[in-house]
Nucleic acid binder design. Structure first.
Lengths: 157, 157
DNA sequence: CGCATACAGTTGCGCGTATAACTAATGATT
DNA sequence: AATCATTAGTTATACGCGCAACTGTATGCG
């Protein structure tokens, strides 16, 4: 076929390298984080993620839809996920006054404690696996460039 | 602790924003890509990834271990993945002369065609979902900063 | 030469997620 | 008030991945 393979001209424009970087960085760092959380806290990353979002929400509560919006999973997966975390006593569901369809997921004290225990190590893991691989200047650039992908938490105070 | 990095000792130091950016960008772009590949080519992203790696390898062939090293999955998952892609006729296995343990995965003509059909659209999808969200300067910076995560294909020419 | 160790890849199993169909409540339209 | 469309969340099913144990081959060592 016409295209010559090994040449970087066709198969890899510059912006594609950026994407590949995101792809690989993500994969490697996620693995490290999961390894750490599982080994030290018996905590799946998905649990940690949910706990973290709740912990930084006002009143430590979020609706299912709010959770899934910001999150890496879909609504469907979230139901079971919250089930499991709930069974472990780290969150609980509460009805919402005024909308009988909705449910709030609330962080329990046990959940907050679990999260706080894991947080520092998680931070250290990200630092070691991710940010230590680049200069401050660079991570600032990366943060700025990818800022637009971050779903802002729009929370009415 | 030894390091109090540049001021913000709160919940989000600057390098953490960079990581969050990677996390979110990855999630969103991956979704878009998967949606496109599935809708237009009935091709899971993992298949496309394998086909692409093979397509850009000399002789369009790679060992299982080479595939898994560079890739986003582990060896175990790869066996089944290659099974499925093989059943679809896009790759095939071949024994390696001189090492009866090893197996080469080889791209078939059908596999190459499938990949090439999907490649352009994939490229366009990444461009639209990822790189159009930032300036050329920025994606260059991102590419540079995350370069170290990319497992280089060390291929003796 | 015979046994132990390391390596390449595959298989059994369990778990978690996504897709789609479903229940239930809300809101809009008439 | 009755109906239709929309939204919130759950459930049924299937599929893909990772972990750990297993087969078979290669290599090291006494």
């Amino acid at each position: 076929m016409p295209n010559n393979i090994s040449g970087s001209s066709k198969s890899s424009p510059e912006w594609f390298d950026a994407w590949r970087g995101v792809l690989f960085a993500h994969g490697q760092v996620i693995r490290e984080i999961e390894k750490y959380l599982q080994a030290e806290h018996q905590l799946p990353l998905s649990w940690f993620d949910v706990l973290g979002r709740l912990a930084s929400a006002p009143s430590a509560r979020l609706r299912m839809s709010e959770l899934s919006e910001a999150a890496l999973f879909t609504r469907s997966g979230l139901t079971r996920l919250v089930d499991r975390i709930g069974e472990a006593g780290l969150v609980r569901r509460e009805r919402i006054a005024g909308d009988r369809r909705g449910v709030s997921v609330v962080l329990t004290p046990a959940g907050r404690e679990k999260f706080e225990q894991a947080f520092e190590g998680h931070r250290a893991t990200v630092e070691q696996a991710f940010s230590s691989k680049m200069s401050p200047r660079q991570w600032r650039q990366v943060g700025k460039a990818l800022e637009c992908f971050i779903r802002k938490r729009v929370l009415t105070g």
